[in-house]
Design a protein around this nucleic acid. Sequence first.
DNA 1: TCCGGAAACGGACCGCCGGTCCGCTATGGC
DNA 2: GCCATAGCGGACCGGCGGTCCGTTTCCGGA
Lengths: 191, 191
Amino acid sequence: MAGQGAERADAARNRRAVLEATERLLAEGGGDHVSLDRVAALAGVGKGTVFRRFGSRAGLLQALLEERSAALRRAVSEGPPPLGPGAPARERLLAFLDGLGAIAEGNAVLLAAHEQACAEDKFADPSYRFWQGHLRALLAEARPDLDADFLAHAVLAVFDGELVRAVTREGGPRHFTRSVQRMALALCERP
Amino acid sequence: MAGQGAERADAARNRRAVLEATERLLAEGGGDHVSLDRVAALAGVGKGTVFRRFGSRAGLLQALLEERSAALRRAVSEGPPPLGPGAPARERLLAFLDGLGAIAEGNAVLLAAHEQACAEDKFADPSYRFWQGHLRALLAEARPDLDADFLAHAVLAVFDGELVRAVTREGGPRHFTRSVQRMALALCERP
DNA sequence: TCCGGAAACGGACCGCCGGTCCGCTATGGC
DNA sequence: GCCATAGCGGACCGGCGGTCCGTTTCCGGA
């Protein structure tokens, strides 16, 4: 959109249509209900278009997820505290988990589908690497005596689509997020 | 085998052959290399046999995993301390994580394939429910002030096949297990 | 030892999936 | 208005998980 310089009008239109069709299908059925044939049909485009635009099923879901999390990413790296730089690590950590938890709760099905589609190379996903790096830095600051790299992976592992769904179903809207925050706090408290 | 009363000799032979073929395929390629056609061919049986025996791809992998973890399950519920009942919660927790970590490290590919195949209903898996229940009880005893149920899910979420592989690859044989133990300890320590 | 019914077998078959390919079409600078 | 070309679409592919049913194998009772 801004300054890309080279995307034809029909291409942009189709991109939007495909993304919207995908989220519609995700909403109305489980993650495995989203086949690329169906997406293409619902979007009113050919299957080839979907693949040229997004490369693969994993790429499509990744793009959708990226769209959902771009704002948080920006806020974390250059927004005002406590999300952005400037606040103490503990406050930034809680604010970050609040934001990430909101995304996860609002997109649990998408999250589950994405995990399934990525499988192998989920650690290569730039979005994952960003969250992991951010968490690692905050944890390292709060608890320099622990293995922040591993803990960052561990905290992100909790953001499992199915787990989010299960916890949210039986605990209410923000229960998952609050639980993750409490866990992170427990990890940060020194004995 | 013991006291089941009703399994024909050929059925038992085929069951073993299928399980062995599955682990052979898992060892020699990624989890998605294990197609049921291939398993059947390598085991020298028909595809129908695999499905009658195990119900589905998920069932096959679950059976294999169950086989690998039966001993730990038994040791935890009726073995001697510190794994079995009798030791303080902290020691039982560390011993349990040591055992589960060993299984995870030795079967990371199987673990990843199983996660992929189960997807939806992984919380219904009796094995998962057992581990979760055990962890919950130990955590509740060590930290009654925290949400043990959620923490048990969170700790198990770390046992992700791909994460185990990645951590083991770059950290050496028992690095994953030690890291999980340290994390659990950090959670148990009161501020 | 033989026999009959039941249990187990095996592989052709099904629908569908993710992904590729190439002849056709719409776009937009000139 | 023209034309190079980026973009399109859907037939096509190999392979997957799962089903089905005619055939083979087992084994307890006579």
